[in-house]
Design a protein around this nucleic acid. Structure first.
Lengths: 228, 228
DNA sequence: AAATTGTTTTAGTCTCGGCTAAATCGCTCG
DNA sequence: CGAGCGATTTAGCCGAGACTAAAACAATTT
């Protein structure tokens, strides 16, 4: 039986690895709000695999961790749960987007296959959530997105907001106020040198106000480039 | 923080006490599918109350356990969650009524107040579930379900045994042999006139034997009417 | 009153998943 | 190369909450 704690570890490894490749002990510790020593202990257990079950991670001391096939399968199931639940809460129960994450965090570990199937059907078997994040299919397939952080977009370029990394409710609210939500069109009007603030005009005529965004923010907003 | 395990204990004590008064260690152990020794250990902890918090149960060794006001409050919150979730799953997600319990058993421990409020509103703030069991209100008030003595049930009616006035151990034993225990479904097959004996068939097919019960007995068995 | 029987409690152990504090590793810099 | 430093791992500990086996208790029967 897979415990909630293990599910959380696997999910965190998956999500951190998406941008980092290998995942370090300290990155995991920070993400899971746990001491590094605890992480090491857990990774050792996960790398062993218990009683005939295959190991869930590849782990070599001091060299970071990646998921095995078996580990990724579980991570994707949990993420599928998470995103379906988020979507369900917001569309069926009228939650605001910045409230759904905490609830999904708890529900994702306890719902049955039955529940998963029913809400997926009710939502029309969606493949992406409102952040633009893909919802893994039951077979573990993930439709990839070719997305770039806003901090990589050149001045003059236009792009469509694809997703926002959803750690921080306050950030989500802030971006909402600016209209920087998934689907919104934006143009980078100006970039200060040396990773200075990026000026962005949101989907409007030339007279729309433009906003200056710091690195903190532009690393978390991902866009599909649309050229020009 | 109240753990899931503690919530399960309190809920079980509440539900067993409804029909029994005090709850025995072994009854709890059986209900929770746990060894008696584990129950004793937990009851001792619950009776202590931790760090300024009041105790959640009244417990004296060898004398059974009851809930304190604080313990009952928590039990009712959990039961409220459970019944609202059951109802929501069956009406909003199309679950069959007999699939609903297992899912609710897990969800009841993790949903937020927000979630509770939203599904309650969506269901029109129901006060009873389809079994006729009351759904406790947020303030902890429970509208009792209408219980009538078996002697008031008409011929042809079915009902569920709610409780037995337990003055007399011999009577309890006798009823136990007949299967007339709380929770059992029964049908009144016949009534003799002038307060004569009442014939009752216990939750079985039409071929189950029916028993004739005198006034002495039928005044002490209380049922929830469930119609037809 | 003593013995039997069934229930309950104690005592000791286990696993899980955290924690802290003290090594140790790997890397960079002088 | 060796020192120092940050990251990581080890080692030992804790609290929850389960388990088993043995002891104590209550209630009945003889």
């Amino acid at each position: 039986m897979i415990s909630h704690a293990v599910e959380d570890y696997l999910k965190a490894i998956y999500e951190l690895a998406e941008t980092t490749g290998k995942v370090s002990t300290s990155a995991l510790a920070e993400r899971l709000r746990v001491q590094p020593g605890s992480v090491t202990g857990m990774l050792q257990k996960l790398a062993e695999g218990q009683e005939g079950q295959p190991p869930l991670v590849n782990y070599e001391r001091h060299k970071g961790v990646t998921l095995t096939r078996a580990g990724r399968k579980i991570a994707l199931e949990v993420i599928r749960h998470h995103r379906l639940i988020e979507l369900y809460l917001s569309t069926a129960l009228g939650y605001d987007w910045d409230q759904v994450d905490a609830e999904a965090e708890k529900l994702e570990h306890v719902i049955s296959e039955e529940f998963e199937d029913r809400i997926s059907a009710m939502l029309g078997h969606p493949t992406h959530d409102p952040h633009g994040d893909p919802i893994p299919a039951k077979d573990g397939s993930v439709s990839p997105h070719s997305q770039v952080p806003l901090s990589d977009v050149d001045a003059g370029q236009s792009a469509r907001v694809a997703r926002v990394r959803d750690d921080d409710p306050a950030l989500l609210r802030y971006l909402g106020e600016l209209g920087l939500v998934p689907g919104a069109l934006l143009t980078v009007t100006d970039r200060a040198p040396f990773n200075g603030p990026i000026h962005v005009r949101v989907s409007g005529g030339d007279d729309a106000p433009s906003h200056a965004l710091g690195r903190e923010v532009t690393d978390k907003v991902f866009v599909d480039e649309t050229g020009s």
